[in-house]
């Protein structure tokens, strides 16, 4: 075929280095997961603890926002800027997020039910 790609066999040193780097990256992911679990606990605990809703509502929305950014950038690899078309992907995702925001503004403040 026209697009013939040749895959280099890595040297033993490069291979061991890559494996170690993958393992290190996986440990980082597990840390991210631990933070997500912690944030979820805090969100549920804040509601159960019965503080003022005016304090809890912004807090749990903020915690949700942090978790979503963790998922997108860490678990879904949006942090890898050299991945193909990552600029397009980032543009579409944040663009979708912005359109989503306009829905909330419209449905909650502009439309009279």
């Amino acid at each position: 075929m026209a697009h013939d790609t040749h895959f280099e066999t890595r040297s033993q040193t490069q291979y061991e280095y890559d494996r170690a780097r993958n393992a290190k990256h996986m440990r980082k992911q597990v840390m991210q997961f631990a933070i997500m679990i912690l944030l979820t606990f805090v969100a549920f605990a804040a509601v159960v603890a019965d503080f003022s809703p005016n304090f809890i509502k912004p807090l749990i929305l903020l915690l949700a926002g942090v978790q979503v950014v963790q998922q997108l950038y860490s678990f879904m690899h949006m942090e890898e800027k050299d991945a193909p078309h990552m600029g397009v992907i980032t543009f579409f995702m944040w663009g979708g997020g912005f359109i989503a925001f306009t829905f909330f503004v419209a449905f909650l403040t502009i439309i009279w039910w």
Partner: peptide, 9 residues
């Protein structure tokens, strides 16, 4: 994302 935004709103 936009689909879910509409059902969320």
């Amino acid at each position: 994302t936009v689909l879910f935004a509409s059902v969320f709103a």
